[in-house]
C-alpha cells in the first residue's frame, strides 16, 4: 500500500512544481486532441446534421452502421492510418508516420464517426421540427442546416466535448502512429501506459490526475454554458 500513497505524494509534487516534462506532454496532448476535434467537428457536424434530416432509402441500415462506427476501436484506426502512412504505404513519401501530424490525422479519423453519429442522431430526433419551421419561413437547404446547428448548439457543444474526451483519453491510435517518442509524440495516455509498464507510478498518477482535471474542466464549462442557455 505504501507505494501507492508515496506515488500520490510524488505525483502531487510533480504537478505543483510544474515539472516541465509533464507539462510539455500535457500541452502536446491538448494540441493534438484539440486540433483533431476541431477538424473532425468541422466536417462531421454539418454532414451529420444534413444526413439526419434527409429522407433516403436505407436510412435505418445507415443509422445502424453509423452507430457501430462510432465505437470503432482506436487501435483499428491507428492500424489503418499507420498502414497508409508507412514507408511502404500509399502516402509513405510524405514521411508522416511517427510525427505529430500522423497523430492528428489518426485522432481526426477516430473522432469523425463519433461526431457524425452524435450529430446525426441529434438531427434525426430534433432537427426535423426545426427544419420544418425553417422551410415554412423560406430558408434554403444551407440556411436550414445552419439554423439547426445554431438551435442545437448546446447539444452540439456537448458532442464536441464528448469527441474531445474520446480523443484525449485514447491511447491505441496515438501509440501506433505516434510511437510515444520522447519530446516529440509522447502524450498523456501513451506516457501513462509506458510508465505503468515501467513501474514508474508517480508520473503516471500525476498525468492521470491531470487527465481527469482536463475532463472535469471541459465538462463543467459545457455544463455551466448549457445552464445559461
Amino acid at each position: 500500500m505504501d507505494y501507492i500513497l508515496d506515488g500520490f505524494k510524488q505525483a502531487i509534487n510533480l504537478i505543483i512544481s510544474f515539472n516541465k516534462e509533464i507539462f510539455d506532454i500535457v500541452f502536446l496532448s491538448l494540441f493534438v486532441s484539440t486540433t483533431a476535434t476541431v477538424l473532425a467537428s468541422m466536417i462531421s457536424i454539418p454532414l451529420g446534421i444534413s444526413f439526419g434530416i434527409k429522407k433516403f432509402r436505407g436510412k435505418r441500415l445507415f443509422s445502424r452502421i453509423t452507430y457501430t462506427m462510432m465505437s470503432i476501436p482506436s487501435v483499428v484506426v491507428g492500424l489503418l492510418v499507420a498502414i497508409t502512412l508507412s514507408r511502404r504505404g500509399p502516402f509513405g513519401r510524405l514521411e508522416l508516420l511517427y510525427t505529430t501530424k500522423a497523430m492528428i490525422i489518426a485522432q481526426t479519423f477516430l473522432v469523425m464517426p463519433l461526431s457524425f453519429g452524435l450529430s446525426f442522431g441529434l438531427s434525426k430526433s430534433r432537427g426535423k421540427e426545426i427544419q420544418k419551421v425553417a422551410i415554412t419561413l423560406g430558408a434554403n437547404k444551407y440556411q436550414s442546416i445552419m439554423l439547426i446547428i445554431r438551435e442545437l448548439k448546446v447539444d452540439i457543444l456537448v458532442n464536441v466535448a464528448t469527441s474531445f474526451s474520446r480523443a484525449i483519453s485514447e491511447v491505441g491510435a496515438v501509440m501506433i502512429v505516434g510511437g510515444n517518442i520522447k519530446y516529440h509524440t509522447r502524450v498523456i495516455t501513451t506516457t501513462i501506459s509506458m510508465m505503468n509498464s515501467m513501474g514508474d507510478y508517480p508520473m503516471a498518477i500525476a498525468l492521470g490526475i491531470i487527465l481527469l482535471l482536463i475532463s472535469f474542466i471541459v465538462h463543467s464549462a459545457i455544463y455551466s454554458y448549457s445552464k445559461e442557455d
Binding site: G172, S197, G208
Partner: peptide, 27 residues
C-alpha cells in the same frame, strides 16, 4: 476516491503490443 478514480483509469488504458524482448515490462 481519487485513488480509485485514477487507478480505474490506468486500468482502462489498453496495453499496447510490444512484441519481442521487453524484459522489464508488465510487472
Amino acid at each position: 476516491m481519487a485513488f480509485l478514480l485514477v487507478f480505474s483509469m490506468i486500468g482502462c488504458t489498453p496495453k499496447t503490443d510490444t512484441s519481442g524482448d521487453k524484459p522489464e515490462d508488465k510487472p
